[in-house]
Simulated scan of single mutants.
Amino acid sequence: MPAKLKCPVCSQLLQPTDSGAACTSNHQFDRARQGYLNLLPSHKMRSKHPGDDKQMIQARNRFLDSGHYEPVINALVDATRTATDNINQPVILDAGCGEGYYTARLHDAFPQAAVCGFDISKPAIQACCRRSQSVQWLVASVNDIPIPDNQVDTIISVFSRCDWQEFGRVLKPGGNVLVLAPGEHHLYALRQVIYEEVRPYPVDKLVSQLPEHFELVENGSVKGTMNLNSSELILDLLAMTPHYWHVKPSQKQQLSELTSLACGIDMKLYTIAYQPSES
């Protein structure tokens, strides 16, 4: 059963219709032919085409489907299993789901769950629909999650921005947020090729600034080494990272001339519990 949705215009509950969804105020949202609902009103978009573009999404698809991040999804599945233990039909929300690799794998691992993924990028959600027709896909913003209050058991945030106010609104008391973030030396070998000086990523900044009612309960790591054996795969990895936006043509050329790269995975996996005070 899909997760409940709320109208992004008036916040009333959305009900399914033959063509999509509508609220009692007659705000209507047609389901795209690919299968998703667009719940990001144009007046709430900061640009005409927000989020990752089609080229970045294609690169992410190719790289993730190569299997090099298999240890990452395995760790995420294990953490989700722990977080949803003793919940018969958990609601799992992937906030900023990108092209849907992690979301679809979570759906496969938890067939009894209502799994919903959303992203601000329309090309990303279109790619999600090609990946799986079994997941509930939405175009939406983490700043205004189109889910009613207190509906979600677990939120997944993979290298995405956390809006703690919205997370607290949609989570059930006792729910969890699972955050994947870069560790100090994540993709160090890749960064060594393109930068003269490689600075460690700041670690644990996110959990040191948690707002009231959110508490860190598990601080885990995902580490490993990827042996990338083609320039195409190396460039696809670059396109998955923020470095893609900052590299100079000469730096990209250096990467394109590599035919192999041993590159380390170093990620932090935080489990953060939501425990609101009793009124």
Rank of each mutant, 00 (worst) to 15 (best):
K205I: 06
L37N: 01
K6R: 15
S231H: 09
I120K: 10
Q136C: 00
T259H: 09
S66W: 02
S157C: 14
H49N: 08
Q112K: 05
H107W: 05
A21G: 02
C10M: 07
I156G: 04
F63W: 07
P202T: 07
K122V: 01
A239W: 09
W137F: 07
Y102R: 06
G168I: 03
E196I: 11
G67Q: 05
M240D: 13
L40R: 02
T259R: 04
I272A: 06
F159K: 06
V91P: 01
Q136F: 00
C129K: 02
R130D: 12
K48P: 00
L180H: 01
C10F: 07
S277Q: 15
H107C: 02
P146F: 04
N219A: 13
Y244N: 15
Q209C: 02
E215R: 14
Q254M: 15
I147P: 06
V217P: 13
T154F: 04
C10N: 14
P146A: 05
G35Y: 09
Q133C: 02
S260N: 10
T103C: 08
V72A: 07
D153M: 10
Q275W: 08
N229Q: 12
Y102C: 07
T271M: 07
A189I: 01
V139R: 01
E196W: 09
Y274E: 07
Q133M: 01
P249I: 02
C263I: 06
Q12N: 15
N38S: 13
L13D: 15
G20S: 04
S250C: 09
S141F: 03
M1H: 11
S42G: 05
K54N: 05
V9L: 08
H246W: 09
I147E: 10
L138R: 01
A189Q: 15
D94A: 13
Q89A: 00
P200I: 09
S256W: 11
P2S: 02
Q136N: 00
A127S: 14
A124Q: 11
K48C: 00
G168W: 03
C23G: 00
E197F: 10
Y69E: 06
G100F: 06
L40K: 05
S141M: 03
N229T: 06
L206M: 14
V203P: 01
L261M: 11
C10D: 15
I194K: 11
Y36H: 10
W137Y: 05
Q58P: 00
S66Y: 08
Q192G: 12
N150V: 14
P249A: 03
H246Y: 13
L216D: 10
